[in-house]
Amino acid sequence: MTVLIDRARNALGPELAGPLAAFAVVMVVFGIAAPNFLSRATFGSVAFQLPELGLLTLAMLLPILTGGLNLAITFTANMAGLTLAWVLQSQGGVDAGIGAFVLGSVLAVAVGALSGLIMGLVIAYTKAHPILVSLSMMIFLRGLGEFLTRGGDVSGIPGFLARIGYSSIFGIPVPLLIFIASVLIWHILLTRMKLGFNTYMIGSNIEATRYSGINTRKVQVLVYTLSGAMCAVAGIIMLARFNSVRVGHGESYLLITVLACFLGGVNPFGGFGRVIPVFVALVVLQLLSSGLNLMGANQHLATAVWGILMITVMILRWLAGRLKFLNTNRG
């Protein structure tokens, strides 16, 4: 039994305690405060809203683990969405077939990956700060997108794509299924694969990792490329959900994804952090906003509460550290 617990702890990491505690608190508080909170509707809305923010958070997670950041995620997602939309348009718009969708999705992922690839190359070869590189990429992509769309919407999406956005398999919305699959892929990547292992090592000390015979440039390039590809998946889901793409869609998610990573116990300097706690943190954030919605508040209040939650968690961590320090000094 203890072996099993140990294994579980190893797989999930010690970071899980914070998000799980927050989860419990949110469930109890809203369970009491909002009588209709523990209902199908709440979980339906969480399941519905989680994927977009979640996929973008996964895209943010990998760069943060290497000690960097990808500020271009939302506009990369927009560009990928635009790519798919244009392919569909050129293949007949609302009458486009499934083949066009597949082709468009592949191209969309390629566009996302390309944006990541460029950032990865610049970061790996010039050692420029990732915040700056991704920030300028963000400004560039925003400009590019607005230039190409003239600031308007691109719509005319075939009906089956919209249906994908809203349909369910075994009662689980398709976007949520895609998100859960992505979470699992990221979890396996980080816990079981060489690239994931090296990602953590680079995050702690890139030079020592290079001295150990790891191709650190390749790891950095791959990390940003995968991050860009994951943005593209988010962009495709967003297109299916909104039936259109507009540059700037989902812009407000950018800093929320960073917040979700930190809330999930990811080390802001890199090297430590796991997918599952981040997943739980995302669920907590969505439950919070759904709960507040039920009580009549809007998304803006939820945003503020997200920030307060983050601060609270950080203060609790600080307190826990102080207690530990005092105890060891006494003993």
Binding site: R192, M193, K194, F197, S204, A208, Y211, F272
Partner: peptide, 26 residues
């Protein structure tokens, strides 16, 4: 020489990851 904040076990295998792979996974 070593990646100080990381685990002892991870530091021991970092240069020889290929040896602990089984079907491509660690």
């Amino acid at each position: 020489g070593l990646i100080q904040p990381q685990a002892i076990a991870d530091n021991m295998v970092v240069a020889s990851l290929d040896k602990i792979l089984s079907r491509g996974f660690i």
